[in-house]
Design a protein around this nucleic acid. Structure first.
Lengths: 252, 252
DNA sequence: AATTTTCATTTGTCTGACATTTAAAAGTCT
DNA sequence: AGACTTTTAAATGTCAGACAAATGAAAATT
């Protein structure tokens, strides 16, 4: 590669002398996004980059670490090593999406209702597609999670985790990886908020009934019924959260 | 803060001696996500962190740059400077979401149909909410973008950009910031794919008609009609893309 | 009391060095 | 000649020490 821009060496804005590593990271990021650097292409060695950008190696390294944090590059040691443009896979994208969403929710005092509304609105978008395309495997996963949710001594955390797994199977049923990626954040980021709810045996029972109805509807490829049941589930979840909030205000 | 973990100094896994900076970044990241470090809290100075983790300052700095790349911390020079836990705002989250989504689509040979299906499925999820809650301001934005789209000498890129602005106003109309954040990626990441389509005067006209119908339906708070028109728009968009693909196969 | 100066702290950057990993090249033995 | 071992070169990973630059607080001055 070159990372050239007009002349032989890439220019970095001399107006903003602060944060050289950020500028270099941006220059390389641009080269990747714009397609000047393609997947699996090797970047110049750190020494060469130091030369090209006229900075020291530690500065180049800081820039590369920034890119590595975004999974834009991967590094490999050894004779044929170096930094390579990373193929951003769906798995990596999921992970980033989830951590960003989780932080966003926890740091911005997003209300349970707002998050819940967003999550179910998005999930309902998957319902018709999932009814059409869900595989037997995905249906089996959902049944298995429902079975797990019915186990007695299950902790609230484990119940929530199983709930997330159930809903992910529902989303994956749409057979659209882009959709699955987008919703990973919405579904998973809700878990910390859901964990604040203590599920009574009664409420678990109710949720399991609704989950079973969803699975049944998917089995019959009845998208409308999936959608209607998701609405019920949303309403019930919000009611549970309200009860918890009320109970905390008046703990007597 | 402490970043302690049991004893006074945080332990980092001695099993994986490679990539110390990644381990340190993860340790601090965990401290932030778990709430041990709260927003705006100052981290120890780089020198102190070097001591705590028993590594050199450059290594600590690489770790901090990783976190800065994820907008988890910000740094400030000077006597009272240092690294501070950053409040991840919706703006930062949007940006990250968009770059990740764009890269994901461009690097994984996602078909136009798949991306398009995901985008419209998600957008339709906003339709009923937007019909309820859209403000006069958001409606005005949409009308203005429609007006712009009707200008003659508009380039395809500018037309696409206006299209994105129109759809973002629609999404924002739902009045749910979490939803807006989630959909930012889906809508914006489509733009590079949309740019591959060359819009004839005829097809622009058709799109503008549909956009106008959507705006009218939102004005009347008719969610069902917004949804129905979005379906039409999706079908039309996919048809346009198919025509382009066919034209390329048989360029005579 | 207000202003200016000094100063200590902290991040940003550079230089140079050594350790570690890795694959290819060179060498050695059968 | 072919298979195995050793050497070597290139690259990242890490460290130590130093200086520059920014910045707010303390000290000195008016």
């Amino acid at each position: 590669m070159k990372i050239t821009y007009g002349s032989r060496k890439m220019k970095i804005d001399p107006q903003k002398p602060a944060d050289l590593s950020a500028q270099i990271a941006q220059a390389i990021r641009d080269a990747i996004v714009s397609g000047k650097l393609i997947v699996d292409e090797r970047l110049p060695s750190e020494a060469e980059l130091s030369d090209q950008f006229n900075v020291s190696r530690p500065t180049v390294r800081e820039a590369l670490k920034r890119l590595a944090a975004q999974s834009l590059i991967r590094t490999q040691r050894g004779a044929t090593g170096g930094a390579f443009v990373n193929r951003l896979g769906f798995e990596d994208a999921y992970t980033q999406q989830i951590t960003t969403s989780t932080l966003l929710l926890s740091m911005n005092a997003v209300s349970f209702d707002t998050a819940c509304e967003a999550r179910y609105a998005l999930e309902r978008a998957c319902a018709p597609l999932s009814a059409h395309r869900r595989t037997a495997d995905q249906l089996a996963t959902m049944r298995a999670e429902i079975f797990r949710q019915a186990q007695p001594g299950l902790t609230d955390e484990a119940f929530c985790a199983s709930d997330v797994a159930f809903h992910r199977a529902l989303v994956d049923g749409a057979g659209n990886p882009v959709l699955s990626y987008q919703l990973a954040g919405a579904v998973e980021a809700m878990q910390p908020l859901m964990n604040m709810i203590t599920f009574t045996a009664r409420s678990r029972e109710e949720i399991i009934v609704l989950h079973t109805q969803i699975a049944d509807a998917l089995e019959n490829r009845d998208g409308d019924r999936v959608d209607a049941t998701l609405v019920k589930l949303e309403n019930y979840t919000r009611k549970l959260a309200q009860d918890v909030a009320q109970q905390r205000r008046k703990p007597a």
